[in-house]
Amino acid sequence: MTRMNYGTAIRAAFMHLLDHHPEVFVIGQGLWAKWYVGNSMTDLDKLYGVDRIMDSPVSESACTGAAVGASLCGYRPIVVHPRVDFMLYAMDAMVNQAAKWSHMVGGQAHPAVTIRGIVNRGGEQGAQHSQALHAWFAHVPGLRVVMPATPADARDLLIASVLCDDPVLYIDDRWLYDLEDDLPPVVERPLELEGPELLRDGSDITLVGSSYTTQQCLAAANGLAERGISAAVVDLRVINPLRAEPIIASVRKTGRLLAVDGGWRTCGLAGEVIARVAEAVHPAELRALPRRLTLPDAPAPTSKPLERIYYTLVDDIVTAAADLVKEAAR
């Protein structure tokens, strides 16, 4: 076992990929800088050379498109977007080109490109430095979307994403970078086999999260236990294609669902989780109406008191879950 945090676990994934897979290279802004991507890529340029760790012009669209093009020629490029907000310039390459390519050519070619989008919010950064837009991308058939919540997943799901023949959007969250864990040695696993996992079993309510909100749900489950409430936690991990079975199985057992998401409410991931459950679980099996906790439908503010009420806190999850359990008991 090796002690790592989420950020160094990502770096370990890069090193594994660059050590063992010569067709892997990395392109993106800030890759030779010390501060663009936290501790997740430190000195990779010095270890692997600037031909494989390619710091790029300020051209999200062309660099992502170039990675898609290179992926059609036998390479497995990783594009790094230090903030999801700026990645939107690359929408066409991701959504129109990479995601559709296999289908459009009858399965004869697959763009094995990984796009790493980093969520970097808080700190009064405001509307264009804070966004979590995973739900947009999870809507697109052909684009796998991966959101690791733990150091082990941060490493192993990045490796699985890059070795997958499909285009993958891998989203990591700077708020998780200091999270530590003991990691076993790397085992390469096919991304196709990865999906939502029950991280903690419980009998009163199912909390569903992804990435940072999964860690919040785990913390909330501890808080709920102190109140005598047994909460299960499902970590989504891969949100497209979304396999809802572990969520459904847990809700069948608990009868209650609280979906927590770091994105907005309308047409968001939490709504999708609730819909999947609603389609599969008969109302008679539910002990309370499903509920979601999301960002309010507003851009991220910069002002301190507004930012304080903008993001969901662990206490919010505890309160909402306890209310659901209480409500149903009435």
Partner: peptide, 13 residues
């Protein structure tokens, strides 16, 4: 839509 893809194919070449 393919102009940047071609540049990436050139990078691969």
């Amino acid at each position: 839509g393919t102009v940047s893809l071609a540049v990436g194919a050139a990078l691969a070449a």
